[in-house]
Nucleic acid binder design. Structure first.
Lengths: 377, 377
DNA sequence: AGGTTATATGAATCCAACA
DNA sequence: GTGTTGGATTCATATAACC
């Protein structure tokens, strides 16, 4: 434990890009992630989101039952000689991450059973304090074609603070509102990244493991404030940067591959900060028959900034990023705010609130129905 | 890796209970789990299920918002000085588990984010091969009363074989049936153990972390055959034993606390084994003997010269006397020719090839089924 | 145009028996 | 050991093709 004390001050020679004084905000740094991290100032970043190589150790080819070939992750960046070399790599970048984080900052790391146990143990060894492990349940995972194991249908995220006593950021109310007035749990369901969100070039996916924006949306909304600085040392095609821009957070990306950087640069340039973004279709999660209003926001069916009114247009409210509503100084979930404004003990926000659609008012419940129709069999 | 070679033969003095030759089946061994494991024979057990202490680092007491006290896990057996001592303990019992397991046996370990990363890394370090990590989604988890984190709504199980090449047991069909004819995924939902299933004494729960029987039911059904021997080195109140008895598996439990042993003994005595017929139906239809296509020719069910086609009638082939097929200059087995004609890496000839029967096409697999019905008891 | 059917694909540690 | 052959094996979603 207690690595902080051991952090040595490096000579400027080892720094690569910027002097440590300045944070290269909203920028992608090209090159090795550890080298670039060493050039960043100590205790300067509010959050780190990291999607490191998983060290999959895949064997031969795999075919589907119909004979088609599975396009596996065979990239060089995922190859390591041994667990020992993977552990060294992990410890090195995590130690730098720890130095760069502010005392009250937090780190998120995503992985699978191939690597997450080693990552988690190293995180603990370095003195981080694990706050939660989060399970991303994939709505549409790839099946196990040979029937040899359980369908590998999830990935794991670790969320950790700098230490046991850290005063980390957790937007409890935002998460609860996003989840329809229930505490947000440690298991999240999202579809894998596909459709128009998936970056492609010449008909092929640009990056083999692009993460869904809905996942980063929830992570950033939960653990940062607007204006906070988020570092992603394995930037890839820039999901973290695109969502950070949408949510009004600052970002720094580190990435080796020029192809990924090009795609990320264009993608982030096209990303619209929240109040300008229009209804954009993302894939909708499936499974839970109960739909939280926040789910519609997360999935782009309701844009933050959208104005809702009651049927008689007596009240007006604005949708916020976490799916809560604001009316003057009053805020709350669709149900809670409806009750407050009417002075009623309770209120069904789904039927109380309406939005302008095709020239007339429509209850937001129709959006939920649309969502359910799109996601239920 | 390669810990098996390092296992030393211990003098009988270190053995506590039984000589290594005999397996103490359907028995609870009282005492230290590592000491008792050392007394068990090498390569003698089919499966190990382990629910080790979680190394929870709960600071102080925890109270609900209404002031009532949370009965947290603060028992003495859950205290460890540091990660280092927990790692030593973990490595010691896992190494013994590895020695005791048969070469094709598997191990299951359940834990939370407090310990599962250390356990998982050690499992990999010892040479085990992780098959899946499984998420137990709790339908009714304890909320996070302070609103400081996400509701900790799941626990993680690791399932691992002795090595990459092990021929472990996985009852694929049973799992698929259990899941309404869809592949069983890596995320399982069960309620936490409560109600009449939860063992109580004087109104208090006997064990702080009693696992639901549904969880063990799925584990044992997935990864063992009837009659297999299952060892649980942290037996607690004997969920593993009770379910093993119900499912016709043999079990061995190790437990230190007499209170738990008493509860487990009574509980297992009251558990009712499923009758043989219900056990049989849960078995996968894997034992069906192989039938060569040539056998059907030999038995006159298929006549040489018979014409076969695929379902879309794109290809035609003629059956030859030895059970091979011919299509122009291409010849081969039903599988090989199907693969060749489609340009596919492989092909199941039984379902690919069809024959004209009663005016419509029928897969030749129906002939095989007919043959099996006629020749099986 | 609108609705239906066929095809493509995703962080995957993916076979078993026998010669 | 290794090489060959038999034969068992897929779910949700997006997109293209086709009536």
């Amino acid at each position: 434990m207690g690595v902080l004390e051991k952090v040595r001050t490096r000579s400027p020679k080892t720094a690569m890009a910027e002097p440590r004084a300045a944070l290269p905000l909203d920028t992608i740094l090209q090159g090795d992630c550890i080298a670039h991290m060493r050039a960043l100032p100590t205790a300067s970043v509010d959050m780190i989101f990291a999607d490191p190589p998983y060290n999959l150790q895949l064997g031969g080819d795999l075919n589907r039952p119909d004979g088609s070939h599975v396009d596996a992750v065979t990239d060089e960046w995922d190859k390591f000689d041994s667990f020992a070399s993977y552990d060294r790599f992990t410890r090195d970048w995590l130690a730098e991450a720890r130095r760069i984080l502010k005392p009250d900052g937090t780190i998120w790391v995503i992985g699978s059973y191939h690597n997450i146990f080693r990552v988690g143990a190293t995180i603990q060894d370095l003195g981080f304090w694990i706050l939660n492990d989060i399970v991303w349940r994939k709505a549409n995972p790839m099946p196990n074609f040979r029937g040899t194991r359980f369908t590998n249908a999830h990935e794991t995220l670790i969320w950790a603070s700098m230490g046991e006593k850290s005063k980390y950021t957790f937007n409890y109310r935002s998460m609860k509102t996003l989840n329809d007035e229930l505490q947000m749990r440690s298991d999240w369901e999202f579809p894998i990244c596909g459709g128009p969100e998936r970056l492609k070039k010449d008909g092929h996916k640009v990056h083999p493991t692009q993460k869904p924006e809905a996942l980063l949306y929830r992570v950033l909304l939960a653990a940062t404030h607007p204006g906070d600085v988020v570092l992603d040392p394995f930037f890839g095609t820039g999901t973290t940067g695109a969502v950070a821009k949408r949510l009004g957070r600052r970002w720094i990306g580190i990435e080796r591959e020029g192809v990924y950087i090009d795609a990320a640069t264009q993608r982030i340039a096209e990303a619209l900060p929240l109040d300008e973004s229009s209804l954009r279709t993302m894939q909708a999660p499936k499974g839970t028959p109960r739909v939280a209003f926040g789910t519609l926001v997360e999935n782009g069916m309701v844009a933050p900034g959208m104005v809702l009114t009651d049927a008689k247009r007596r009240f007006q409210a604005v949708v916020r990023a976490d799916g809560s509503l604001a009316c003057g100084v009053e805020t709350g979930s669709i149900h809670k705010l409806g009750a407050t404004l009417q002075g009623a003990p309770s209120c069904n926000g789904w039927t109380f609130w309406h939005h302008e659609s095709e020239g007339r008012l429509q209850a937001i419940d129709t959006l939920r129905q649309t969502y359910l129709l799109a996601t239920q069999p």
